[in-house]
Design a protein around this nucleic acid. Structure first.
Length: 946
RNA sequence: GCCCAGAUGGUGGAAUUGGUAGACACGAGGGACUUAAAAUCCCUUGACCAUUGCGGUCGUACGGGUUCGAGUCCCGUUCCGGGCACCA
């Protein structure tokens, strides 16, 4: 008997793979490509826990499977290595973030190497490496130098737009912009350099904008919308306030429609597509011009319910709207100011939670363009400045928020749908027949009427009427905002930007990358500048002298360099392109390599990135696609979201005020407090009492009340965290059971996409299976028991059943059921005493993606050349599974009464006859009449009797 | 509030997509081997009734429905998870 010595086997093959460069990948035109990618990790100080490898193992199995099918598989790995934790650690300890980041990377690498992944480490990328962020800066510059042409639906060089301004001004331009501007060619030419720069910011895809941002005072930086959750920062949970600041932004909103449309072309889960759809938030409606009474001012409102124009009883402006100042009358000024002060005092969080009705009358009236009615204009915080036009028409009868407002301020409510009862609440449904539009005896603009139409018809009719009569236009609004792209931090990509008389200019492309300067202090400067302000000599730093030299080519003064850094998502937005050509110093990716690898075929990662990375990355890729750099409109063709691995905590129960611990089943007899206990000293919920005593000094003298001589621990599913003592790291599992067992077990735990608690309870089963699989190949004396014998029909049946199942399962990521199938097949072949080389070689090839180390060892033992990862994936042949007869349940009145054999090719009629003449059938037929018979070949026979 | 996904033994989870529910594994119980333990192997293991043998009834969150037949399809309810949220 040769033992399954996993330690020796795994160590040997780890070394061999490195020595032979087994997983090195080259572009190869002769082979079809397949690109598998994991979301690269942020190397945190805690190292990997068992949750991390889940996705890596799943994709590794897939990558190996595809390689065995003959594809040229790219399966790279790298590190998302800029980020806040390293910087905060630096602030606390003075350790440079680069130092801790590199230490963490080394630790990650060490842990990853133990699990047997087929990563091509020659392609590793780190977002904090100058050779990498060179291309992050480069892409930013491209965005700066581009605008989005709405008629072409793609990015164009900003120079085209400038040329256009030179000749025709803004007349007829089709460009995504922050504000609608209007000027002539003459006016453009007359502008100062500053004004021109300012104007172009309105169109650039990467632009400097004065916008409301999420400012987190505690973190000292602005945050993107997806980094703010329920009004507090995602990281740290600190309060976030709205502040108007000058920041770099990316015009993601220009791509909103394409981001939405693209979802239909990719294989992502419905739920994550839904999340993105919600985040993009397309709504189709109308913008309508409203004239202010006794004034020449007018303003625009946005509505999706154009049909309710006849029910408008007031208008509302967002408090931040610039119209507020213009529409507030003298008499109301004091009150309005009071209200604005109140609104300013409220944090984002308060505003989000507390929906009490507040507002103030501006003193002005707006004229309903259809009815001609004069309606008061209010200012209220329930209207948001950032969405639509920051002004609405209020229809209390059919909008719950307007309803609450109208009730509070005693404003009229006009119902517009037949049968709608608005005495208690508004009728928001878009259903029913329209009435009161106009009301009896009232007139309307050009006699326009909606009465008798359904709500849906009325919406369309009004949109048409409004745009045909110049009252407004049809408009699509998106909730997706432009991304705020600068952070007031140190540990991020520097901007390749310098300022010349206040005008932001791009540092010449040949001077990239602009390297992150060394600083001593990672906090903001005393004058409140970002941490990069501490790098006073930065501009003169040897590494950056070339920038200054070029930038100041004919100047003598030093121009300041941008002190902001880029946000976390900058480096992770195009990393999949860089893996295609990671060491290219001339381009992000060469034309040849981009054409060969195209895009990611399979992307594996957590769904928590749905509204962050996965949106930004798609946006970034679409931009690069417009430039012709990326070859596919969508970066990630198929996406699998691995579930989170939660922690499974164990508890011991201490009897109050004692040092005695009582086992789970007996704890109710005492007054106890549950205490978290390290899961690593608990096995199958049984506490290792000695290890517990040694765990903490205060437990050294602990006493135990046992049940069945065991101490049984309680358990609960919680987040995996150090404080709950439920962190299990993969090294410990590898040490005890081996990497192959870890791989198998993580997959056996359940479907990859499902969240589940980590629970070592079942791991022995997977380890046992590997032992059995190993024993299939060795006799009692430790010799290979494989011969050239002809496989039996049973051997082939077991094998091909397995091939069929595993091949189908891998494509569907149902790895847990394939492992079950392996267990069954192994037991069958063991029972059959299969020795056939033909069968056993295929078994090794099949298990190779799941347990590569043991597969390599057996492959070598079988005398095969090369690595098992190049072993051809076995072909499935139906002929071995064809049965001459099948056993089916025979049902009477839908209940299975007995089982019997049928010829596999029996017709339904024959099956019924056979079933009826079977001896077991007689007692069910006695004294009864046959009402109906149903037979489905290979499925079921059912006989209905009365 | 709106949208999405889900609920199956003591546990993790299967079920050819409408056809013998509970594969596989863990745990538990019993047995073999052993001085003993570990390891290994065999049997039992959804519940209830019967158990001398057959066997029978119920059972996939709950209540209805469609069907010869429903874990699977339809309607309603409850619960858990996720997303969006004064977005007009």
């Amino acid at each position: 008997m040769r033992d399954y010595d996993f330690r020796k086997i795994e160590e040997k093959w780890r070394a061999q793979w490195v020595a032979n460069k087994t997983y090195h990948v080259e572009e190869d035109e002769k082979k079809e490509k397949f690109y598998v990618l994991n979301m690269f990790p942020y190397p945190s100080g805690a190292g990997l826990h068992v949750g991390h490898p889940l996705g890596y193992i799943a994709s590794d199995i897939y990558a190996r499977f595809k390689r065995q099918q003959g594809y040229n598989v790219l399966n790279p790995m790298g590190y998302d290595s800029y980020g806040l934790p390293a910087e905060q650690y630096a602030i606390q300890t003075g350790q440079h973030p680069e130092k801790t980041t590199f230490q963490n990377i080394d630790r990650y690498r060490e842990q990853l190497d133990k699990i047997g992944f087929c990563f091509d480490w020659d392609r590793e990328v780190r977002t904090c490496a100058p050779g990498y962020y060179h291309w992050t800066q480069w892409a930013f510059q491209k965005m700066f130098n581009s605008y989005f042409d709405t008629s072409l639906g793609k990015a164009q060089p900003i120079d085209l737009l400038i040329a256009r301004f030179e000749s025709k001004g803004t007349e007829g331009i089709t460009a995504s912009c922050t504000d609608e501007l209007s000027f002539t060619a003459e006016e453009w030419k007359a502008m100062s350099e500053q004004d021109k720069s300012q104007t172009l910011m309105n169109y650039r895809i990467a632009f400097l904008g004065e916008t409301m941002v999420n400012w987190c005072p505690k973190l000292g930086t602005v945050l993107a919308n997806d980094e703010v959750i329920d009004g507090v920062s995602e990281r740290g949970g600190y309060p976030v306030e709205q502040k108007k600041m000058r920041q770099w932004c990316l015009r993601v909103s220009a791509y909103a429609q394409r981001l939405l449309d693209g979802l239909q072309t990719i294989e992502w889960s419905e739920s994550i597509k839904e999340t993105q759809k919600n985040w993009i938030g397309r709504s189709e409606g109308a913008e309508v011009q409203i004239k202010v009474a006794d004034s020449d001012i007018d303003f625009t409102i946005f509505t999706t319910r154009a049909d309710t124009m006849f029910g408008v009883t007031f208008f509302v402006l967002a408090p931040e709207s610039e119209l507020v100042a213009r529409l507030t009358t003298e008499e109301q000024k004091e009150e309005v100011d009071k209200y604005l002060t109140y609104v300013k005092s409220r944090t984002e969080r308060e505003r989000m939670i507390d929906h009490t009705v507040t507002g103030v009358f501006s003193g002005s009236y707006g004229i309903n363009p259809i009815t001609g009615d004069k309606c008061p204009i209010y200012i209220a915080e329930y209207v948001l400045s950032g969405y639509g036009t920051g002004a609405i028409m209020a229809v209390p009868a059919h909008d719950s928020r307007d309803y609450a407002f109208a009730r509070h301020f005693n404003l009229p409510i006009i119902p517009l749908v037949e049968g709608a009862d608005v005495s208690e609440e508004s009728y928001d449904a878009k259903e029913g027949i329209v009435m009161n539009s106009p009301m009896e005896g009232k007139t309307s603009f050009k006699g326009f009427s909606l009465n008798g139409l359904t709500v849906k018809e009325a919406i369309e009719a009004t949109k048409k009427f409004v745009s045909e009569n110049g009252l407004g236009r049809v408009k699509v609004n998106f909730r997706l905002r432009d991304a705020i792209f600068s952070r007031q931090r140190y540990w991020g990509e520097p901007f390749p930007v310098y300022y010349k008389q206040g005008i932001p200019c791009m540092i010449p492309e040949e001077c990239l990358p602009v390297e992150l300067p060394q600083v001593e202090n990672f906090l903001p400067t005393e004058s409140g500048e970002p941490p990069l302000g501490n790098a006073q000599l930065w501009a003169w730093d040897e590494a950056n002298r070339k920038i200054v030299d070029k930038a100041l080519i004919d100047e003598k003064t030093v121009f300041p360099i941008e002190l902001f850094t880029m946000p976390g998502f900058a480096g992770s937005s195009a990393y999949y392109l860089r893996y295609m050509d990671p060491n290219n110093g001339k381009a992000l990716v060469s034309e040849e390599n981009a054409n060969y690898w195209q895009n990611v075929d399979l992307y594996v990662g957590g769904s928590e990135h749905a509204t962050g990375h996965l949106i930004y990355s798609r946006f970034w890729n679409k931009f690069l696609f417009d430039l012709g750099i990326s070859k596919k409109e969508e970066p990630f063709q198929k996406l699998i979201n691995q579930g989170m691995i939660q922690g499974r905590s164990n508890f011991v129960y201490r009897i109050k005020d004692t040092n005695t611990f009582v086992s789970l089943g007996l704890k109710d007899q005492y007054e106890t407090t549950p205490i978290h206990v390290d899961v690593n000293i608990v096995k199958n919920d049984v506490l290792d009492v000695e290890a517990f005593k040694a765990w903490r000094p205060e437990y050294e003298t602990a006493e135990f009340i046992l049940e069945d001589d065991k101490y049984i621990c309680g358990w609960a599913v919680e987040k995996m965290s150090k404080s709950m003592f439920n962190v299990v790291n993969p090294d410990m599992i590898v040490e005890r059971y081996g990497a192959d067992t870890l791989r198998l077990y993580e997959m056996f735990l359940g479907p990859v996409e499902q969240s589940k608690p980590w629970d070592t309870n079942g791991i022995d089963g997977c380890h046992r299976f590997l032992k059995k699989f190993w024993q299939l190949f060795w006799d009692k004396d430790g010799n290979l028991q494989v011969d050239a014998s002809e496989p039996t029909a049973d051997n082939m049946k077991s094998l091909h059943k397995l091939i069929k199942k595993v091949t189908a399962d891998i494509e569907e990521f149902s790895y847990n059921t394939s492992i079950s199938a392996f267990m069954v097949a192994t037991n069958e072949l063991t029972a059959q005493k299969c020795r056939s080389r033909e069968v056993l070689e295929k078994m090794v090839a099949l298990i190779s993606p799941f347990a590569p180390h043991v597969a390599e060892e057996l492959w070598e033992a079988l005398g095969k050349d090369g690595s098992v990862c190049d072993a051809a994936w076995p072909e499935f042949d139906e002929k071995y599974l064809v049965e001459s007869s099948v056993q089916l349940g025979v049902q009477f009145n839908g209940k299975v009464r007995f089982a019997m054999q049928f010829p596999a090719d029996a017709t339904p009629e024959e099956m019924v006859q056979m079933a009826l003449s079977a001896p077991e059938a007689q007692k069910h037929l006695e004294g009864k009449q046959i009402v109906k018979t149903i037979a489905v070949p290979k499925r079921i026979v059912n006989i209905v009797v009365k």
